[in-house]
Amino acid sequence: MLEDILKNIVEMEEHEAINKAKEYLEGGGDPQKLLEVCRDAMGEVGKRFEQGEYFLSELILGGEIFKGIMEFTLPKIKSGSVQKIGKIVLGTVKEDVHNIGKDIFKVFAEASGFEVIDIGIDTPEEKFVEAVKEHKPDIVGMSCLITAGVTSMKKTVDKLKEAGLRDGIKIIIGGGRVDESVKEYAGADAWADDAAKGVRLCKQLLDWRVD
């Protein structure tokens, strides 16, 4: 059954995936196991995307199926027993209102075990600073789809430095308008213009925390 669910998610069979997941839980299945299977499925979707087999529409539908299953699965898992591997504060930068890429990255990060605090779009620098103070994340993620947002990222990093918070976090930037030179310019630690790679990099950034 779990194997079927995995296959249905990966093959984008929304109805089958959701119905079987419901059936599985109603039949006394273990929600924790279901969660793990869904995560594996999302990992596979991300992999296919990185390999050029899947496109953005598959990432969005995959995310939609995942969210659909989580809606009735998460409440069945004892709070506290869901292991989080790290915490990310995520927002689209000031002057930029594109949210789709950020939302896809969020689902994939959550599916691989991160807790993600989404602070929205067109996010002022100060809001990032406040969110870091409040949530004490391991990683700050900034999404940027317009060239004007590049300056916003730099300003945000500068504000985090001024507030003395920069050394306690890692910063990853993403979205269609970032690359190595933008990373350098903004003063971030990593960049990704694809969600699956972004999640992989976030896991690597966590290793730094252990040292």
Binding site: M12, E14, S57, I60, E64, D103
Partner: peptide, 11 residues
């Protein structure tokens, strides 16, 4: 909306 139309294509 962009996300909706992408899901509509499947649904």
């Amino acid at each position: 909306g962009i996300e909706n139309v992408l899901l509509d294509i499947r649904r």
